[in-house]
Design a protein around this nucleic acid. Structure first.
Lengths: 215, 215
DNA sequence: GGAACTATCGCATATATATGCGAATAGGAG
DNA sequence: CTCCTATTCGCATATATATGCGATAGTTCC
């Protein structure tokens, strides 16, 4: 038998919080290291009593679960805690924000006890458990932001370097200096890039480059 | 008892394919409607004998699983098939491509039979099952492409409209005409936007707008 | 050897952008 | 009533970009 995983619960709903707590303490694999009904209290205590995993409600009053996650992940002492967000909704932008804030998992509150316990094990193993309904939203987000690469679009080495410069906001002059080619040569490559991307302005090229992941 | 879910298998490894097949046929909930060892054969047959779900190996010889998925999803007859990608690797760009091609789920081949069967049920329920190890990669991708919105950056209505125009590649003149304001007014808004985004060129503004999801 | 292709550079010019320095009107908060 | 913000507009000017129409040198292919 190994050491139990220390799990903290941040949830303002008393009933749900206690449910999670007893779920954890019922299993020998886990140990509820603390339970909090607000993000502020959690932040204060968690910096000294550091758990392995946090089950974090997203809809906390005052300090939101996302804010709370962000602060935990940006403090050195608590940066390694694996945060699993629990939510009743499936808002894709909230998911994105949670991911950016540093959460490692995202589960619906309706998930079964087994799933929640599995999820805790998975974040400890470097995985990111996500309820399928949530994952569907994430898929939708990715489809919005990116497009499948077009086989007709194939930039060579120099063109790729130049468009990277464009995306970084460098002027033609700066791009030329960076790669030791003349401004006029940069212009030539940009012509080719515009031709390939079917655009005729720098900003359109930049948008397409990002969408098609050419940079 | 309801009608079994019809599942096709596209997998070049005979052993694994037959394993999936018997897994499916063993359960009354599922029915293996066909099994294929190549994408081309699958494409040819699947357009007439249409399953509910496809378990698709990603590493097929010749026509890749992603190519195959793309073609299935772009043909009207087969567009509604839910494709679950099976893979041994966890390459994040492959995941992204699969998502863009129209896959609904993404599982490691090492997943347990129960997980695979659950996944089939989930895609039928509008979910996108994803192995946690894969989801972790997807999380990483999203972190690369986006940043948490900066609270200091808050564009008002007009500014938002203007930056949308910038991202769309419109000229100042076109933006002005679109919103019935003068070019000089557009300039004024752009000044404010640049100030707020801390940039001083159109392309930098466009990149930041995308990264911070201002558009 | 010539055709085709790539990588490099030059010059001219018409637009587009970036920015400095204004200003007027209207509405909301204190 | 005053301060602040949002919204609108104008003019001048220095750069930056977009694009047309070239050129030269080196490679590869046949």
């Amino acid at each position: 038998m190994s050491i139990p995983i220390r799990v903290a619960v941040v949830e303002d709903n008393k009933l749900f919080r206690e449910g999670l707590q007893s779920l954890l303490n019922f299993s020998p694999d886990f140990e509820c290291s603390g339970d909090f009904d607000s993000g502020a209290v959690a932040l204060a205590t968690l910096s000294t009593d550091i758990p392995d995993v946090i089950l974090m409600d997203i809809d906390l009053p005052e300090l939101s679960g996302i804010e709370c996650t962000m602060q935990l992940k940006s403090a050195a002492a608590t940066a390694n805690i694996q945060v699993i967000i629990l939510t009743v909704l499936e808002d894709e932008y909230k998911v994105l924000e949670a991911i950016l804030a540093g959460a490692s998992g995202y589960l619906l509150k309706s998930s079964s006890p087994e799933l929640i316990m599995d999820a805790i094990r998975q974040v400890c193993n470097g995985g990111s458990p996500m309820s399928p309904a949530i994952a569907r939203k994430v898929f939708g987000l990715m489809k919005l932001g990116y497009s499948l690469p077009d086989n007709k679009i194939r930039l060579n080495k120099r063109e790729t370097e130049v468009i990277e410069g464009l995306v970084q906001g460098l002027t033609y002059k700066m791009i030329g200096e960076k790669y030791f080619i003349s401004v006029d040569t940069v212009r030539t490559y940009i012509r080719n890039i515009y031709e390939k991307l079917q655009v005729n302005s720098r900003s359109e090229a930049v948008v397409k480059a990002i969408k098609y992941r050419l940079v």
